[in-house]
Amino acid sequence: MSVREFVRSKVPTDIDRFDRRLALVSVLRPPSGLIIPLVVLLAFMFVGPIASIVLFSVQPTNTISLAVADWTLDAYREIVQGTISGKGVYGEVTTNTIMISALTTVIAFAVSYPAAYALATKVRRFKLPILIALIIPLFTSVNIRVYGWVLFLINEGVFDLLAGSVGLDAPSIIYTRSAVILGTVYVYLPYMLFPIYLSISTIDDSLLEAAADLGAGRTKQFVDVILPLSKPGVIIGSLFVFVLSLGAEVEAELLGGGTIYTAASNISYSFGYSQNWPLGSAQAVGLLLITTVCGVVILRTIDLTEIASRGGSR
């Protein structure tokens, strides 16, 4: 019997209380005390909501309270049958959503890559103002920015004002799928640009010097050094843009003018107008799975230390 155990057997209550207090203090000691608030918050209001989406998707039509025992696959059946038979909007929704997200990703990549490359390798002067100009849109409400596009594109809008002053007259693309894609490319472009910019700016200068010393011209340096080394940024950016544009609702609502249905607008319709939570949830589960997988892949690839050391405004 150790001294401690001996003492405890004599005065059990006091020591127990002291031990417990000690245990509490050590639980709250950093890092645990620093982690707990975030973990509790996410467990309550992030994991809980995700679980609700999954659980509601297996509830009977039009329920708004959970009875987990009465599970059914009705909502999924309706979506699958709707997609196969081609009746209703599901077929169109799937085509629209995939088309919009895929095209948005491709266009955002095509626009961003040269910009990210220029920013990382060519730009020396005015770098900070350029960076600020590129992040400003991210901090403005999505519906305000998309509404700005509506004002630009509508008949007799800002575009017509500008085009008219130089004698141009072009038909507007508003309320078409192209307009929705313009909106999603616009909103998610920075999510493609910045990962690519960061990955190009982490490339060690000496690698390019070595390549040049070995006789590689500028084109060869680009194809054999910069392009492969910027791949992580391209992958992260593409996943980011693809996933986020799957969730594009305001873009479809305002720029599609209620004629272009996407997964997000359909989900929101199920929740809002038709009050069918299980049907909306079942559609959301697909989106949820894709999002979680892509999110985890992105986060496993991101190295914060590298961003901190290279991503500054050098």
Binding site: M45, F46, G48, P49, I50, A51, S52, I53, F56, F240, V243, L244, L246, G247, A248, E249, A264, I267, S268, F271, W277, G280, S281, A284, L287, L288, T291, C294, G295, I298, L299
Partner: peptide, 14 residues
């Protein structure tokens, strides 16, 4: 990384 619409409606049901 979550589309906000997913967070919003999950939270609403929760």
């Amino acid at each position: 990384f979550f589309p906000l619409i997913l967070l919003g409606l999950g939270m609403s049901m929760w």
